[in-house]
């Protein structure tokens, strides 16, 4: 559908968008700015999905990640205080160890990728994937599909339960107050 050159250009544009904004996510001092940098990372990943011929997954990424997860994260940032006053990083030693760990992780992944003879099936045309995904979901993957719905209900109930827990720390009965019972103050 697209020529190889256009694909390469799009790939590099999306890659720069993803890697640059991901670096901003982990390096920016202000957590709100990190959250907005994460927006661009997720958009770039959606673009990579569509470049890979996965149109349905790309749109799902935009709907669920950008429309749902990001809004949740921004709400989490807004509902907790001290977003500006906190130091960005841990102690310097932790930063050094984190950098070393990240470099080791990437080196391992890179040499693994380079040393494996990948098996290709050749050219795969750009066709709409919604219909085959729907067919697969209701035939081969019916049980995981139903379990996913169950998981979402459980996660929703669990999140609503956790958020309603009231803990009083100011009074002297803090030990008693930590004995939490289902959303009620004790």
């Amino acid at each position: 559908m697209y020529s190889a050159t256009v694909q390469a250009i799009l790939f590099y544009i999306f890659s720069i968008l993803i890697i640059g904004s991901a670096l901003l996510v982990v390096l920016l001092k202000n957590i709100v700015r990190s959250a907005f940098a994460l927006f661009f990372t997720l958009f770039g990943v959606a673009g990579i999905y569509i470049l890979l011929g996965a149109d349905f997954i790309g749109v799902t990424q935009v709907l669920i990640y950008i429309g749902g997860v990001m809004i949740l994260i921004v709400f989490g940032v807004m509902l907790t205080r001290n977003v500006y006053s906190m130091d960005i990083f841990n102690r310097l030693g932790t930063v050094v160890m984190g950098t070393i760990s990240a470099i080791i992780t990437f080196t391992m992944i890179y040499y693994s990728i380079k040393n494996v003879p990948w098996f290709y099936i050749g050219y795969k045309p750009y066709i709409p994937t919604t219909e085959p995904i729907g067919t697969q979901l209701l035939t081969n993957y019916l049980l995981p599909f139903e379990l996913a719905s169950l998981l979402l209900v459980l996660a929703m109930i669990g999140a609503a339960y956790l958020i309603r827990i009231e803990v009083k720390l100011k009074n002297n009965k803090s030990k008693e107050a930590l004995d939490i019972k289902g959303g009620k103050e004790v």
Partner: peptide, 26 residues
Amino acid sequence: GLLFSIGVFGVLTRKNAIAVLMGVEL
């Protein structure tokens, strides 16, 4: 792999719990 390594760095170094969550998302 690059994106994963950046996520590892974020999870290991950030102090803010929500920032660690963002690293997990990456």
